[in-house]
């Protein structure tokens, strides 16, 4: 994608705090994602990556701070409102509707097409397009039950289901966790394919090598605070951060 001007900011997060019950998990987290970017939110387990995503989605009750999606404040809204405003969420544990077929899973995620503020159409997805992107899903047929799929296939379905909402930005939580290396590689290909179609992605990741394969920039989270932000090249060069906070 070529932009004459710097690409507009999709997501702006400022001073985000979140709590699980009485436990304070996120402390003044701030970052941004621009249109067309793939940004990695990195950090080890328990650093607060999934909590950040859940907080952005409005799934945690106790939260504070500003979250703007294309300039609109979404911080106080309910999960369904946030999803309807164009933020897509792919959870870490997939959460496929196992009693529903592939086609029905996609139907649940369906939302109307969107347009960018400049009135150009945002990426629009149909089951057919998704089947083309994920031939595995097509092979199984639309009537296969979600529960009768392997972990890797479910991972593709959960991404497709979120894409059916035609989101401006997709939150992709730990796509490489707990799946075989060969599937991890497929995930990397998928992310790059989505990026080429104009989808912006914020992904959470522990695996530096995976993140380096797919993302433009990274933020590193540790104990609920942002400790580093920069391009992937800067991260690769920063031995200190890598050793202290990441999987190397």
């Amino acid at each position: 994608m070529i932009h004459r001007e710097p690409p507009p900011t999709l997501l702006t997060v400022e001073g985000l705090n979140a709590w699980y019950g009485a436990a304070h998990i996120l402390f003044d987290v701030g970052f941004e994602v621009k249109r067309g970017e793939v940004v990695a939110l990195m950090g080890r387990n328990g650093a607060g990556k999934s909590t950040t995503f859940k907080t952005l989605m409005g799934l945690l009750e106790r939260r504070k701070g500003t979250v703007k999606l294309m300039g609109q404040d979404i911080s106080g809204r309910s999960p369904s409102q946030i999803a309807r405003m164009g933020l897509g969420f792919v959870p870490e544990d997939r959460r496929i509707f196992t009693d529903l077929t592939i086609a029905e899973n996609l139907e649940v995620g369906r939302q109307a097409a969107r347009r960018w503020p400049d009135d150009s159409p945002a990426p629009e997805w149909t089951p057919q397009k998704l089947y083309d992107l994920f031939p595995n899903l097509k092979e199984m047929g639309p009537d296969r039950l979600g529960g009768r799929m392997s972990g890797g296939e479910q991972q593709m379905l959960t991404v497709s289901r979120t894409l059916m909402g035609n989101p401006y930005l997709v939150l992709l939580d730990e796509p490489s966790e707990g799946v075989a290396p060969v599937i991890v590689e497929q995930m990397a290909h998928m992310i790059l394919a989505l990026k080429s179609q104009g989808v912006s992605i914020l992904l959470s990741e522990q695996n530096v090598h995976f993140a380096e394969l797919v993302s433009d920039r990274a933020y590193v989270l540790e104990k609920g605070q942002i400790r580093f932000s920069g391009t992937m090249a800067e991260l690769a060069a920063n031995e200190e951060v890598r050793r202290s906070y990441l999987t190397v």
């Binding site: 799934l59 999960p79 369904s80 999803a83 509707f97 009693d99 529903l100 909402g165």
Partner: peptide, 15 residues
């Protein structure tokens, strides 16, 4: 039917 399984996920999908 989706709601019988996972209501939170359903809301995160915009329902």
């Amino acid at each position: 039917r989706a709601a019988t399984q996972d209501r939170e996920m359903l809301s995160a999908l915009g329902v």
